[in-house]
Design a protein around this nucleic acid. Structure first.
Lengths: 349, 349
DNA sequence: AAGTTTCAGTCAACCGGTTTCCTCAGACGG
DNA sequence: CCGTCTGAGGAAACCGGTTGACTGAAACTT
């Protein structure tokens, strides 16, 4: 018969092992400042195991130790990009003995609440923040509070706590691909203004377009959603002058959802993909392969971003310092059916 | 100058209000078993407010009160259906003064760990379980542990703790639509066997197909993913005899991802949507409207499922009993371009 | 006028760990 | 042979709330 639902306490383990609470606590936490005979150590571990002992996190936190829990604040649960990052974070956290909690931060509305609930009420040891924005209410609270934290994906200039990917490189990769196919007029659908990776991606796009000597490289902003991508695409494809032709032959988007929305908009305009307009998306998630046509994407190391962020946060919690971190894995082009040579071969005048 | 990062404690509030710790605790928790003058009550609230007091959740949990936190266990973060449910749950939890935590349960692997981390370590007051399956390791632990919990979406027969939607109705709605268009041979892509809503949906599909007198109503199972939908679709569309025609003119899937995978498979087979095969998906999420063609779906009340589940769980935690709950909102057909009349008008021989 | 209620709040134990001194026994040094 | 040192572990305070028993004063009874 399994033990009832009565909590197994430290003192129970102590009793079973024939030692005191203090000894059990120190042994189980692997503290060096105590000398114990190997045999005692073994007895303690065995007793804990046999009884299925689990320390009460509240008691632990109260006594000044840490909670072994982290929280991850992401801007939108509905965005599979962040979910992928979160999975990486979860996994690594567990490997390091931390429990990680997920909270959605609807662009600052919830952040303050979550901060109180999680940090001020002592539920977590640190924060992974993927929802940073200039003027975000959380930034203020954080700077005052000495709570360990790192910013991931959306970085905060000068914080020395940023964990990011090589976003600039993803623009270059996408643009090179389109250039090699023969495109000379390429539009970029950026994310909302003020969000770091979005700005970096855009800047890299414009710079590289310049290096390649493209004929046109217009940019339009939109949310990271299907609708955001749709309206930005319509904006970029609106014929400029009397000429009925769309001003660009290819689009490079900041998110997968934007790409889906853009593709829908392109079809609505009566244009074909990729014959009339090629599309390259960002972030390679399963759905990309099943779209019509299948979407060419730049795969970002999302999972690794999650693990790297947890590594950096745990380092901070444990007192080891880390500066800004950039995940080393490079963005990778995944070729599918949404890109092809432009219809008009000699696009350059 | 804002207060430093030193924690504001109960005694600080007590001191500021000129009363004892006990009084502050009781006033802030709104306990009836204490009589206080309105004026004292006001002073306490004002002091707490002014100091920005936040009770330490660990201390609270330790002292026997509850933690005001719930955990939601979902089978796959990558599945937007569950994410939508989760958002409903989050929102309602907050309204009721609870913090809700999200944990992914990779089909039982993680459940046991999560259970220990969250429940045994005293971090939460109750569990919302969306990942139940027959033989799931969690079920055992739960039945022994007296932890308040409810099962949502995936129900557990006879538990009296199920919160579900009218899944059977969704099959009827989808089938009626296809029947009205003239389809007489309709295939169903079910979820993995053993999962309740999947079984119910399938049974309702077969029963209603029988009631309508369909010529064929084959069923194939697959994961709730794009690939699962793709292979199930190929199975259902494989010509049976020498006849080169696919055996069905329409498909009804259990998830949105399955529908996306099925659509890709249909195209790979050289068939057109909806001219050759109509497709109806389950769960209306934003991406459905932006597919090519836009997907006709049965919209399920996912958000409400989340809120209803939290209501039921909180009721359980607070000692009020609730039996099984079915969310009253009916599944709603959302008409889009993936369904049309079948090519051959007189399909019935 | 004395006893009994009621009101308004206080006292102190307790929850389950962690941590800081201690202690005690045996080994070692002189 | 006595004092000191070291190894192995223990006693108790403490973390920040909650809670049931308790108290002192005022109000009400009879």
């Amino acid at each position: 018969m399994p033990e009832q639902s009565v909590r197994v306490k430290l003192v129970d383990v102590a009793h079973a092992a024939g030692v005191s609470k203090a000894t059990v606590s120190k042994v189980l936490n692997g503290r060096q400042d105590l000398s114990v005979r190997p045999e005692t150590r073994r007895r303690v571990h065995e007793a804990a195991e046999a009884l299925g002992y689990r320390p009460h996190s509240g008691a632990r936190a109260l006594a000044g130790a840490n909670t072994h829990a982290l929280a991850l604040l992401i801007p939108a649960l509905a965005n599979p990009t962040y979910v992928t990052i979160a999975r990486g974070a979860y996994q690594r956290a567990r490997e390091l003995g931390y429990l990680s909690l997920l909270a959605e931060d609807f662009d600052g509305q919830e952040a303050d609440e979550s901060f109180h609930d999680l940090v001020q009420e002592g539920r977590v040891d640190g924060l992974l923040i993927a929802s940073a924005r200039p003027g975000h209410p959380l930034l203020d609270a954080l700077s005052r509070s000495a709570v360990p934290h790192v910013f991931l994906n959306r970085s905060v200039e000068g914080s020395g706590r940023n964990v990011t990917m090589d976003v600039a490189r993803s623009s270059v990769t996408a643009l090179d691909h389109l250039y090699d196919l023969g495109h000379r007029r390429v539009g970029h659908i950026a994310g909302p203004p003020g969000i770091t990776p979005s700005e970096v991606r855009k800047r890299a796009f414009l710079e590289h377009a310049d290096e390649l000597g493209l004929d046109a490289a217009p940019v339009a902003s939109g949310d990271f959603t299907e609708d955001g991508g749709g309206s930005a695409a319509r904006e970029l494809l609106r014929p400029a002058d009397g000429d009925g032709r769309p001003p660009v032959t290819a689009l490079y988007t900041s998110s997968l959802a934007q790409a889906i929305g853009a593709m829908a908009a392109i079809r609505d305009l009566g244009l074909r993909i990729p014959e009339d307009v090629s599309v390259v998306g960002n972030d390679d998630l399963p759905v990309a392969a099943h779209l019509n046509p299948p979407l060419t994407t730049v795969a970002m190391p999302l999972h690794e971003l999650g693990t790297a962020a947890v590594d950096a946060l745990v380092a901070t919690i444990e007192g080891r310092q880390t500066g800004d971190v950039v995940v080393p894995t490079e963005p990778q082009l995944v070729l599918r059916g949404s890109t092809a040579r432009p219809a008009e071969p000699g696009a350059t005048p």
